[in-house]
Design a protein around this nucleic acid. Structure first.
Lengths: 116, 116
DNA sequence: CAGTATCCGACCGGATACTG
DNA sequence: CAGTATCCGGTCGGATACTG
Protein backbone atom coordinates (compact mmCIF):
# COMPACT_ATOMS: atom_id res chain seq x y z
CA UNK A 1 0.00 0.00 0.00
CA UNK A 2 0.97 3.62 -0.48
CA UNK A 3 2.15 5.52 2.54
CA UNK A 4 1.97 9.30 2.50
CA UNK A 5 5.33 9.79 0.76
CA UNK A 6 5.84 6.76 -1.43
CA UNK A 7 7.63 7.11 -4.75
CA UNK A 8 5.87 4.72 -7.10
CA UNK A 9 8.14 2.85 -9.53
CA UNK A 10 6.69 2.56 -13.05
CA UNK A 11 7.35 -1.16 -13.33
CA UNK A 12 5.41 -1.83 -10.16
CA UNK A 13 2.49 0.28 -11.30
CA UNK A 14 2.38 -1.42 -14.70
CA UNK A 15 2.48 -4.82 -13.00
CA UNK A 16 -0.45 -3.89 -10.75
CA UNK A 17 -3.40 -6.21 -11.51
CA UNK A 18 -5.86 -3.35 -11.06
CA UNK A 19 -4.04 -1.27 -13.66
CA UNK A 20 -4.06 -4.21 -16.03
CA UNK A 21 -7.75 -4.92 -15.87
CA UNK A 22 -8.75 -1.26 -15.97
CA UNK A 23 -6.65 -0.66 -19.08
CA UNK A 24 -8.20 -3.73 -20.72
CA UNK A 25 -11.71 -2.47 -19.92
CA UNK A 26 -10.74 0.89 -21.35
CA UNK A 27 -10.24 -0.58 -24.82
CA UNK A 28 -12.74 0.55 -27.42
CA UNK A 29 -15.22 -2.35 -27.45
CA UNK A 30 -14.37 -4.47 -24.42
CA UNK A 31 -17.07 -3.25 -22.08
CA UNK A 32 -19.82 -3.64 -24.66
CA UNK A 33 -18.75 -7.16 -25.61
CA UNK A 34 -18.68 -8.14 -21.94
CA UNK A 35 -22.07 -6.55 -21.33
CA UNK A 36 -23.59 -8.63 -24.12
CA UNK A 37 -21.89 -11.86 -23.05
CA UNK A 38 -23.08 -11.24 -19.50
CA UNK A 39 -26.63 -11.92 -20.73
CA UNK A 40 -26.01 -15.06 -22.73
CA UNK A 41 -23.39 -16.75 -24.96
CA UNK A 42 -23.04 -15.35 -28.48
CA UNK A 43 -21.72 -16.64 -31.78
CA UNK A 44 -19.12 -14.55 -33.60
CA UNK A 45 -21.29 -13.08 -36.32
CA UNK A 46 -24.11 -12.66 -33.88
CA UNK A 47 -21.88 -10.32 -31.86
CA UNK A 48 -20.83 -8.66 -35.08
CA UNK A 49 -24.44 -7.92 -35.94
CA UNK A 50 -25.36 -6.91 -32.39
CA UNK A 51 -22.60 -4.30 -32.16
CA UNK A 52 -23.19 -1.66 -34.77
CA UNK A 53 -19.97 -0.20 -36.07
CA UNK A 54 -17.43 -2.78 -34.90
CA UNK A 55 -15.15 -4.23 -37.56
CA UNK A 56 -14.42 -7.95 -37.82
CA UNK A 57 -10.82 -7.18 -37.02
CA UNK A 58 -11.62 -5.36 -33.78
CA UNK A 59 -14.19 -7.92 -32.69
CA UNK A 60 -11.59 -10.66 -33.14
CA UNK A 61 -8.92 -8.68 -31.29
CA UNK A 62 -11.26 -7.80 -28.45
CA UNK A 63 -12.40 -11.40 -28.01
CA UNK A 64 -8.84 -12.74 -28.20
CA UNK A 65 -7.75 -10.27 -25.55
CA UNK A 66 -10.55 -11.26 -23.23
CA UNK A 67 -9.88 -14.91 -23.89
CA UNK A 68 -6.20 -14.39 -23.05
CA UNK A 69 -7.23 -12.78 -19.78
CA UNK A 70 -9.45 -15.77 -18.99
CA UNK A 71 -12.58 -13.62 -18.93
CA UNK A 72 -14.22 -15.19 -21.97
CA UNK A 73 -14.33 -18.80 -23.13
CA UNK A 74 -14.27 -19.73 -26.79
CA UNK A 75 -15.89 -22.98 -27.88
CA UNK A 76 -15.57 -24.29 -31.42
CA UNK A 77 -18.23 -26.66 -32.74
CA UNK A 78 -16.66 -28.56 -35.65
CA UNK A 79 -19.67 -28.31 -37.92
CA UNK A 80 -19.67 -27.26 -41.57
CA UNK A 81 -19.60 -24.30 -41.72
CA UNK A 82 -17.83 -23.91 -38.37
CA UNK A 83 -19.66 -22.40 -35.47
CA UNK A 84 -17.92 -20.68 -32.55
CA UNK A 85 -19.52 -19.70 -29.30
CA UNK A 86 -18.23 -17.07 -26.89
CA UNK A 87 -19.32 -17.02 -23.27
CA UNK A 88 -18.24 -15.33 -20.05
CA UNK A 89 -16.02 -17.49 -17.87
CA UNK A 90 -16.71 -17.71 -14.15
CA UNK A 91 -14.00 -15.08 -13.65
CA UNK A 92 -15.58 -12.87 -16.27
CA UNK A 93 -18.93 -13.11 -14.52
CA UNK A 94 -17.29 -12.23 -11.19
CA UNK A 95 -15.63 -9.26 -12.83
CA UNK A 96 -18.91 -7.97 -14.21
CA UNK A 97 -20.48 -8.36 -10.76
CA UNK A 98 -17.64 -6.43 -9.15
CA UNK A 99 -18.26 -3.66 -11.65
CA UNK A 100 -21.80 -3.03 -10.40
CA UNK A 101 -20.92 -0.26 -7.91
CA UNK A 102 -18.91 1.56 -10.56
CA UNK A 103 -21.76 1.43 -13.08
CA UNK A 104 -24.15 2.57 -10.37
CA UNK A 105 -21.87 5.52 -9.62
CA UNK A 106 -21.60 6.41 -13.31
CA UNK A 107 -25.35 6.18 -13.87
CA UNK A 108 -26.03 8.25 -10.77
CA UNK A 109 -23.93 11.12 -12.03
CA UNK A 110 -24.20 10.70 -15.79
CA UNK A 111 -27.81 9.84 -16.45
CA UNK A 112 -29.21 6.55 -17.68
CA UNK A 113 -26.99 3.83 -19.03
CA UNK A 114 -27.69 2.72 -22.55
CA UNK A 115 -25.88 -0.57 -22.55
CA UNK A 116 -25.52 -2.02 -19.07
CA UNK B 1 -31.01 -2.12 -20.74
CA UNK B 2 -30.10 -4.79 -23.24
CA UNK B 3 -32.68 -7.38 -24.09
CA UNK B 4 -31.51 -10.66 -25.54
CA UNK B 5 -31.41 -9.46 -29.14
CA UNK B 6 -30.64 -5.75 -29.00
CA UNK B 7 -28.55 -4.16 -31.70
CA UNK B 8 -26.39 -1.60 -29.93
CA UNK B 9 -25.87 1.68 -31.82
CA UNK B 10 -22.33 3.05 -31.59
CA UNK B 11 -23.39 6.56 -30.66
CA UNK B 12 -25.40 5.27 -27.73
CA UNK B 13 -22.52 3.13 -26.50
CA UNK B 14 -20.05 5.99 -26.75
CA UNK B 15 -22.47 8.23 -24.86
CA UNK B 16 -22.79 5.67 -22.06
CA UNK B 17 -21.45 7.20 -18.82
CA UNK B 18 -19.93 3.87 -17.82
CA UNK B 19 -17.97 3.67 -21.05
CA UNK B 20 -16.76 7.22 -20.55
CA UNK B 21 -15.42 6.78 -17.06
CA UNK B 22 -13.86 3.38 -17.80
CA UNK B 23 -12.03 4.77 -20.81
CA UNK B 24 -10.78 7.68 -18.71
CA UNK B 25 -9.52 5.30 -16.02
CA UNK B 26 -7.82 3.26 -18.71
CA UNK B 27 -5.50 6.13 -19.61
CA UNK B 28 -1.86 5.59 -18.81
CA UNK B 29 -1.50 7.41 -15.45
CA UNK B 30 -5.04 8.20 -14.33
CA UNK B 31 -5.48 5.41 -11.82
CA UNK B 32 -2.14 6.07 -10.13
CA UNK B 33 -2.79 9.80 -9.84
CA UNK B 34 -6.21 9.13 -8.32
CA UNK B 35 -4.74 6.56 -5.93
CA UNK B 36 -2.26 9.12 -4.65
CA UNK B 37 -4.82 11.91 -4.36
CA UNK B 38 -7.13 9.54 -2.50
CA UNK B 39 -4.67 9.67 0.39
CA UNK B 40 -4.11 13.40 0.58
CA UNK B 41 -3.84 16.51 -1.62
CA UNK B 42 -0.64 16.92 -3.62
CA UNK B 43 1.21 19.78 -5.21
CA UNK B 44 2.15 19.48 -8.89
CA UNK B 45 5.84 18.77 -8.53
CA UNK B 46 5.16 16.58 -5.54
CA UNK B 47 3.08 14.32 -7.80
CA UNK B 48 5.78 14.56 -10.42
CA UNK B 49 8.35 13.28 -7.94
CA UNK B 50 6.03 10.65 -6.48
CA UNK B 51 5.31 9.08 -9.86
CA UNK B 52 8.49 7.73 -11.29
CA UNK B 53 8.53 7.92 -15.07
CA UNK B 54 5.72 10.36 -15.74
CA UNK B 55 6.55 13.37 -17.89
CA UNK B 56 5.41 16.89 -17.01
CA UNK B 57 3.32 16.88 -20.14
CA UNK B 58 1.43 13.71 -19.21
CA UNK B 59 0.96 14.75 -15.60
CA UNK B 60 -0.59 18.01 -16.77
CA UNK B 61 -2.82 16.26 -19.30
CA UNK B 62 -3.94 13.64 -16.80
CA UNK B 63 -4.78 16.25 -14.16
CA UNK B 64 -6.59 18.47 -16.67
CA UNK B 65 -8.66 15.51 -17.82
CA UNK B 66 -9.63 14.60 -14.28
CA UNK B 67 -10.38 18.23 -13.51
CA UNK B 68 -12.60 18.42 -16.58
CA UNK B 69 -14.48 15.36 -15.37
CA UNK B 70 -14.97 16.98 -11.98
CA UNK B 71 -13.02 14.25 -10.22
CA UNK B 72 -10.12 16.43 -9.11
CA UNK B 73 -10.07 20.01 -7.84
CA UNK B 74 -7.26 22.40 -8.64
CA UNK B 75 -6.49 25.21 -6.23
CA UNK B 76 -3.99 27.94 -7.04
CA UNK B 77 -2.32 29.81 -4.19
CA UNK B 78 -1.08 33.11 -5.61
CA UNK B 79 2.28 33.03 -3.87
CA UNK B 80 5.66 33.66 -5.50
CA UNK B 81 6.57 31.22 -6.86
CA UNK B 82 3.03 29.94 -7.46
CA UNK B 83 1.82 26.89 -5.65
CA UNK B 84 -0.96 24.65 -6.94
CA UNK B 85 -2.74 21.97 -4.99
CA UNK B 86 -4.65 19.05 -6.46
CA UNK B 87 -7.21 17.16 -4.42
CA UNK B 88 -9.97 14.64 -5.04
CA UNK B 89 -13.41 16.19 -5.32
CA UNK B 90 -16.31 14.59 -3.47
CA UNK B 91 -17.26 12.87 -6.73
CA UNK B 92 -13.71 11.63 -7.15
CA UNK B 93 -13.74 10.19 -3.66
CA UNK B 94 -17.06 8.46 -4.37
CA UNK B 95 -15.61 7.05 -7.56
CA UNK B 96 -12.61 5.63 -5.75
CA UNK B 97 -14.92 4.08 -3.17
CA UNK B 98 -17.06 2.50 -5.89
CA UNK B 99 -13.90 1.00 -7.32
CA UNK B 100 -13.18 -1.03 -4.21
CA UNK B 101 -14.94 -4.25 -5.34
CA UNK B 102 -13.10 -4.15 -8.66
CA UNK B 103 -9.71 -3.74 -6.98
CA UNK B 104 -10.61 -6.53 -4.57
CA UNK B 105 -11.47 -8.78 -7.51
CA UNK B 106 -8.23 -7.89 -9.30
CA UNK B 107 -6.11 -8.49 -6.20
CA UNK B 108 -7.87 -11.80 -5.52
CA UNK B 109 -6.98 -13.15 -8.94
CA UNK B 110 -3.77 -11.28 -9.72
CA UNK B 111 -1.83 -11.25 -6.48
CA UNK B 112 -1.07 -8.26 -4.30
CA UNK B 113 -1.66 -4.73 -5.46
CA UNK B 114 1.34 -2.48 -5.50
CA UNK B 115 -0.35 0.87 -5.65
CA UNK B 116 -3.87 0.75 -4.25
C1' DC C 1 7.10 26.02 -8.98
C1' DA C 2 4.05 24.84 -12.36
C1' DG C 3 3.51 24.66 -16.25
C1' DT C 4 3.72 25.30 -22.38
C1' DA C 5 5.56 24.27 -26.91
C1' DT C 6 7.28 21.26 -30.22
C1' DC C 7 8.54 17.11 -32.22
C1' DC C 8 8.17 12.30 -32.89
C1' DG C 9 7.56 7.22 -32.68
C1' DA C 10 4.38 3.54 -31.40
C1' DC C 11 0.23 1.61 -31.36
C1' DC C 12 -4.80 1.72 -31.34
C1' DG C 13 -8.47 1.13 -34.21
C1' DG C 14 -10.99 1.58 -38.90
C1' DA C 15 -11.51 0.08 -44.04
C1' DT C 16 -11.10 -3.19 -47.39
C1' DA C 17 -10.08 -7.48 -49.47
C1' DC C 18 -9.43 -12.24 -49.14
C1' DT C 19 -10.06 -17.49 -47.20
C1' DG C 20 -10.68 -22.48 -45.05
C1' DC D 1 -19.43 -18.79 -40.64
C1' DA D 2 -15.51 -17.15 -38.59
C1' DG D 3 -12.04 -15.46 -39.23
C1' DT D 4 -6.72 -13.32 -41.69
C1' DA D 5 -4.02 -10.03 -44.21
C1' DT D 6 -2.85 -5.54 -45.43
C1' DC D 7 -2.86 -0.78 -45.31
C1' DC D 8 -3.36 3.54 -43.16
C1' DG D 9 -4.63 7.68 -40.42
C1' DG D 10 -5.20 9.53 -35.81
C1' DT D 11 -4.28 9.68 -31.21
C1' DC D 12 -1.60 8.32 -27.07
C1' DG D 13 2.23 9.13 -24.74
C1' DG D 14 7.48 10.05 -24.28
C1' DA D 15 11.64 13.44 -24.86
C1' DT D 16 13.37 17.80 -24.85
C1' DA D 17 13.46 22.70 -24.53
C1' DC D 18 11.59 26.84 -22.92
C1' DT D 19 8.80 30.33 -19.54
C1' DG D 20 5.89 33.56 -16.17
Amino acid sequence: MLDAHTRVPVAEYDACPVTGIVRRMGERWTLLVLALLARRPYRFNELHRAIEGISQRMLTRTLRGLEGDGLVERTVFPTVPPSVEYALSAEGADLMASLAPLTAWAVRRGGSSASM
